[in-house]
Design a protein around this nucleic acid. Sequence first.
DNA 1: GCGACTTTGTTCCTGCGTTCACAAGCGGTT
DNA 2: AACCGCTTGTGAACGCAGGAACAAAGTCGC
Lengths: 219, 219
Amino acid sequence: MIQPRPRSIPEATVARLAVYLRVLTSFADGGRTTVSSGDLASAAGVNPAGLRKDLSHLGSCGVRGVGYDVRALRERIARVLGAERSRACVLVGLGNLGSALADYAGFGSRGFEFVGLLDAAPERVGQRIGGLTVQDVADLEAVVAATQASIGVIATPADVAQQVCDRLAAAGVRSILNFAPVTLSAPAGVDVRHVDLSVELQVLAFLGQQRVPVGEASA
Amino acid sequence: MIQPRPRSIPEATVARLAVYLRVLTSFADGGRTTVSSGDLASAAGVNPAGLRKDLSHLGSCGVRGVGYDVRALRERIARVLGAERSRACVLVGLGNLGSALADYAGFGSRGFEFVGLLDAAPERVGQRIGGLTVQDVADLEAVVAATQASIGVIATPADVAQQVCDRLAAAGVRSILNFAPVTLSAPAGVDVRHVDLSVELQVLAFLGQQRVPVGEASA
DNA sequence: GCGACTTTGTTCCTGCGTTCACAAGCGGTT
DNA sequence: AACCGCTTGTGAACGCAGGAACAAAGTCGC
């Protein structure tokens, strides 16, 4: 019998929980204390029923007839997502995109901290970006070992991304976020998520072009 | 009878087609002329059967017993995705991320061309980034009208993203790619795609932490 | 010319995600 | 204290995506 593992939250739900967390933080900053599923759903751009189902995965948290306590719900989601404690990340590739990521304030406020910046170009090594000094990618294994980083971000050119991925995995990194336009293969036990900006644009363009030829003036 | 509209490709398939396009281009550059669904699928990181199903949406394109002609398949996918002709894009927000996007070579080679860069900060207006001169965001409507841009990319701070989105939509932009960490609402007829880097990291972190407590040494 | 092998294209099926709809529960009011 | 409206939480149905298996078709070898 398969153990009915106590925490089996669908991946799609996890992604939405992260969105709820952001919205709730925004609400809390605005001084709001309670929120209904309808309000929260519209702010997050989802269906109210789906939101309630998402929230049901972490146990009853709301009060019927009233709604959810903003602070309590935020804390609970943060705990489930593991966003309460900071996570160490290493970033490989300090080109334009990598530098932008290193400077991106959005990560630090969400529990992610870059503890190592690595690049292969000698002229970049030694530069300070976002409060850190860029190190030589040759020291990747040492940096991962010293910082105990569990997350790696790849923002290198495509042709070295797989090699960097292999080294990160071998060094003990369990999760990899890949911005390079290649499909990476990693050993079992290592999660890879791929963000391909060109793919996003192409999907968008396709949806847009599909809308035009129909040319329905109205219903 | 419902007209079996010739082009009704699932969104998930469209996203994968864009990946296949990239892999095929890579194969073509490598001098390869034919490819089987198995090889292409492993290079793209998907299931062979799923790949064939995706490709079946654009008509029979392969030769049984042989595989697919790399060049022909690439052309067909490019035509379906509309990647053969260049698309004009405007980019709003030239902070770290916006500057990286403006410089990102991956867009130009995939049929997307930035025709306008806009920012609100006076010190950024006039700068040249990626071959273009940054213009004042006050001229957004004029730039969109002059360039006939159909795609807008938002890389602004969160607090002005909705306002920029509204102006882009009003100016005639039909597709918007949003990098700001807020859920945007746009009028009907305007597609919005959201890329939230923090959400990606949080999903990754959650999957990673879920793996640890199980601690299954092996099968 | 014929057979066998390879690979595509399709069909079925299973599972998941999403949506709708309703019962249960709590606060406010009279 | 009882009623009523509001909101949550859950159960069921629908639709869709993913995966596996099978038939069709074309090529290579003999």
